[in-house]
């Protein structure tokens, strides 16, 4: 599938494990550019926004560095976007982590709230948990090859996305008998992963590869080649 290499950018910020993501991409043959420059962000074929820290910290950093606008602008170009952890959470309408509720980018309906201590015995949710993929609507063929197998990925977070539209949830993870959270969300060109693909071993690298493949197909035929990605 390799034609010209897609240009992948990573949103530069103080609140992210930038090099972990860049290292993981490099392991799958993608040299990503870490940038907070609007022009460079907009010229990328796909954009990854990692985030660690609290919703309010990350969002206010993005606001003060004009990243909120650049990210929104990028997403509106319909090119593939992936938010990781807090980078996914800020795509929702509002987040409650931090001193006061903070407005998000509102590409997804729903709020980011604390894991409920009455249901979840351990907070933060730290460790490997199993992705359970939802029956797919055909637009989301990206993760087709992951459907059959139950794959474990690495989570570390205390807040989760309470998504209003269940169809936005591509995969979930179970934290207790009666409690699950969105693990992968997706709508049009926008994806989010609550776990850390860059820290999820081989499975994580495969997921990143599947995402990056979108950018090489984006401008041509978005439905082809996607099924190539299997876990070997």
């Amino acid at each position: 599938m390799s034609k010209s290499k897609p240009k992948v950018s990573i949103v530069k910020s103080k609140y992210a494990n930038l090099y972990s993501v860049a290292n993981a991409l490099s392991a799958i043959g993608v040299e990503a550019q870490i940038t907070d420059d609007r022009k460079e962000i907009l010229s990328a074929d796909s954009l990854i926004c990692p985030g660690v820290g609290s919703f309010s910290q990350v969002k206010s950093y993005f606001d003060s560095h004009k990243l909120t606008d650049s990210i929104s602008e990028f997403i509106n170009t319909s090119k593939p976007f992936l938010g990781i952890c807090v980078g996914m959470q800020i795509l929702f309408e509002k987040g409650y982590e931090g001193k006061q509720p903070t407005k998000g980018l509102a590409f997804f309906e729903g709020e980011v709230v604390s894991l409920p201590p009455n249901k979840v015995s351990r907070i933060p949710h730290i460790g490997w948990n199993t992705l359970s993929f939802k029956p797919l609507n055909n637009k989301k063929a990206l993760f087709n090859s992951f459907n059959e197998s139950a794959e474990d990925v690495y989570f570390v977070h205390s807040f989760y996305c309470s998504a209003k539209n269940k169809k936005d949830i591509l995969a979930s993870a179970q934290l207790a008998e009666n409690f699950e959270i969105p693990a992968i969300i997706g709508k049009n060109n926008i994806y989010g992963m609550q776990f850390h693909p860059e820290r999820s071993g081989k499975v994580g690298l495969q997921l990143l590869k599947a995402f990056v493949s979108l950018s090489s197909e984006h401008s041509e035929n978005p439905s082809q080649n996607i099924k190539e990605f299997k876990i070997d």
């Binding site: 090099y19 290292n23 690495y154 850390h196 999820s200 071993g201 081989k202 994580g204």
Partner: peptide, 8 residues
């Protein structure tokens, strides 16, 4: 380690 190992 961080460039070669992709677990926490």
């Amino acid at each position: 380690t961080a460039t070669e190992v992709f677990i926490p």
